[in-house]
């Protein structure tokens, strides 16, 4: 069934998450036990039922990775690819909709609260100090940190034409790559450039997350003057030169601090 996209405002999302925060201990613990079994009684729109089920299948398959900080990225990646396949960009899910935080808030808070909680069970420091229990940023509050939105955009900005090729390009990365990519748009996301950069980065494995940070940082500095699409060989050649500039001998900066 095709999803009929629904929205949830910041204010409403805040109210729902704060209600969870303010539950009595027994009720909250009971809720978490249900969420661990992917059991929610949320009244989301029926068109999301298959969507939810498919995401739960992937999450459940890889949920054991939650215990290992280094491996949890694979769960994010697999889930991101599934999410992207369920909500492919196009007429039914436009650029405007994929940017619409209220659409992602509905998905996070109403449709997928269980896996969002299980992925990020720790609230932010200030929320915790105020007696809160859920990670507000990952559910609804920070526009570039809403977890499922970041996964969709990570795949979108890295897309290589097919799920398999995209997986191949991203499989050696880590969770920090997701944040770094999403949070360094410069003047705006240049989508073909980001896809080229991800290919170039993958072609130069092994690498470390800080290499990627340096890569995106140098790109942002360059883009003040240069428009990569207008350079000789376009984005692909630009990405290659950029990486070569950072690591002249084709080596990653293993000794860098």
């Amino acid at each position: 069934m095709m999803i009929r996209l629904k929205k949830l405002s910041y204010k409403e999302a805040h109210r729902i998450i704060s209600d969870y925060d303010n539950m009595e201990d027994i009720a909250f613990n009971d809720l978490i036990e249900h969420w661990k079994r992917y059991d929610t009684d949320n009244d989301y729109h029926e068109s999301y039922a298959d969507f939810r089920e498919e995401l739960i299948d992937v999450f459940d398959k890889y949920h054991s990775l939650l215990e290992d900080n280094k491996k949890v990225y694979l769960l994010d990646l697999k889930l991101g690819l599934k999410l992207y396949s369920l909500l492919p960009p196009g007429k039914d899910f436009t650029e405007i909709q994929s940017n619409d935080n209220d659409i992602w808030r509905y998905i996070s808070v109403k449709v997928m609260p269980d896996i969002t909680y299980l992925r990020y069970p720790e609230p932010e420091k200030n929320i915790k100090e105020a007696g809160g229990r859920l990670n507000h940023k990952r559910f609804y509050a920070a526009t570039r940190r809403i977890w499922l939105k970041t996964l969709w955009w990570y795949i979108h900005l890295s897309w290589q034409g097919s799920e398999e090729k995209t997986f191949e390009v991203l499989k050696e990365n880590g969770t920090d790559n997701i944040n770094k990519l999403i949070e360094t748009p410069g003047r705006g996301y240049r989508i073909p450039l980001f896809r080229s950069m991800m290919r170039e980065y993958a072609a130069n494995t092994p690498h470390k997350v800080r290499d990627f940070a340096a890569f995106t940082k140098l790109n942002n500095a360059k883009c003040v003057l240069v428009e990569p699409a207008l350079t000789l060989g376009g984005e692909d050649a630009y990405s290659h030169r950029l990486f070569g500039e950072l690591f002249p001998k084709g080596e990653t900066n293993e000794n860098a601090e």
């Binding site: 940017n99 705006g188 207008l230």
Partner: peptide, 17 residues
């Protein structure tokens, strides 16, 4: 010398040529 139009949509954080 090339001539092109650079577009930027701040609301959606997108840019292109």
């Amino acid at each position: 010398l090339g001539i092109c139009i650079i577009w930027t949509n701040k609301t959606l954080t997108q840019t292109g040529c």
